[in-house]
Design a binder for these strands. Structure first.
Lengths: 130, 130
DNA sequence: CTGAATGCAAAGCCTTTGCATACGG
DNA sequence: CCGTATGCAAAGGCTTTGCATTCAG
């Protein structure tokens, strides 16, 4: 993986975002520093970096792909109205399941557990008229 | 909500699918019974029925919208390679979180909790060459 | 040098929508 | 009858890709 200024800036911009932006948001921000960068480059680098483990591609509901500079898996809250994503400020219990058959995962490879609450965020909750 | 034969067949086809199909899969199956149905009608009815609560629109990762005839919320397993979805054969513990601030949900409306495991399903696990 | 990365634009995939027509209640 | 639902096709949003060019090592 070659070091390029595009990749650097994309990573830096993402790192400053705690709101799990999509590619287009990152693109707009990166353009302030690299006006000639293309959307394709942003998509390509987000893919490459998430595959190398440098960043996380969120596996949650919603219609766009979102990225997170935080690698450590953690639960999210998604507003069904405005689409905003928040980190949940608490941890998941280790013993998540009951009545789990011991052999269910035989033959499967379990990689990840994604936890997502949905509902209305604070600002959408207060703006039923909009 | 008017009763139409398109809606009936879509619901019937979905009810026979436990693999959480997308709109195009449902469309192909429904066409066997209603050859002149359009994809748009399938999408429209899936939306209408999920909003009325007759079926569930899955809120999980992946690039297509998937539907479930089972209304009761339950955890899923998604294969990152082939995209197949399985129901998990066990329940979620009631006390899911620890260190949860009591007032976190103040101002928010919590509607749903989505739980999704990801990994490799049985057939993809055994076919690393494909 | 040489292959990986980029910019640009076109294509792709899935989903939604406008509009005239058909049909359920 | 009236208004919802349909079929059709076009448009839309987001993402990926082909290709010539540039650039990092």
């Amino acid at each position: 993986m070659r070091k390029t200024k595009q990749r650097d800036v994309i990573l830096r911009v993402l790192s400053e975002h705690m709101d799990h932006p999509g590619a287009d948001t990152i693109y707009e921000e990166v353009r302030k520093f690299l006006p000639r960068i293309s959307l394709g480059t942003v998509y390509r680098n987000l893919d490459i970096m998430s595959e190398s483990g440098a960043i996380t591609k969120l596996e949650i509901g919603g219609s766009i792909k979102r990225f997170d500079p935080v690698i450590n898996p953690h639960p999210h809250f998604r507003c069904v109205k405005c689409g905003s994503i928040e980190d949940l400020p608490f941890e998941i219990n280790k013993s998540l399941f009951s009545d789990k058959p011991d052999n269910w995962d035989n033959g499967r490879t379990i990689q990840n557990l994604n936890i997502e609450y949905t509902g209305l965020c604070i600002s959408c909750n207060g703006n039923s008229h909009s």
